[in-house]
Amino acid sequence: MAFEKVDEILEKHGYRHDALIGIIQDIQRLENYLPLETLRHISHRLEIPLSRIYYIATFYKSFSLEPRGRHIVKVCLGTACHICGATQNLEQMERTLHICEGETTKDMMFSLETVNCVGTCALAPVAIVDDTYYDAVTPEKVEKILSNYATESEGIESEKN
């Protein structure tokens, strides 16, 4: 397995131990998740115990140890969104995608995640797909939002037919 790109990241951060979180962030951006072999590789290169890296990868919420879908759907569950009905939106997302929070659809199109607050409370309740923010989401709008991305998705497509 080639790790040239991973080594580039390590090089960019100067193999510094204190840059570990930044390194893992860059690796996640490169690979979309954190594969065991890559983490083992940086453990060897940086001489940091794998258990420490694994602890970081499981402690912080933005890291994923599982491959994630092409589109990341985030439902904000911040206070403002909560009292404006974010939970119902999440339930509807789960129902529509046939997955639970934290999971990825079988066709690897969507990953459903929750986030504590994205700082756009004035638009509550908010959902984010990749980099696009959707404001004042209601369970009725969920399907429409997802269908913007579902054209390539087998899962939703098959149900439409």
Partner: peptide, 10 residues
């Protein structure tokens, strides 16, 4: 000094 085990999650 080997740190074979560690904490996981939060």
């Amino acid at each position: 000094g080997v740190r074979a085990i560690g904490f996981v999650g939060r």
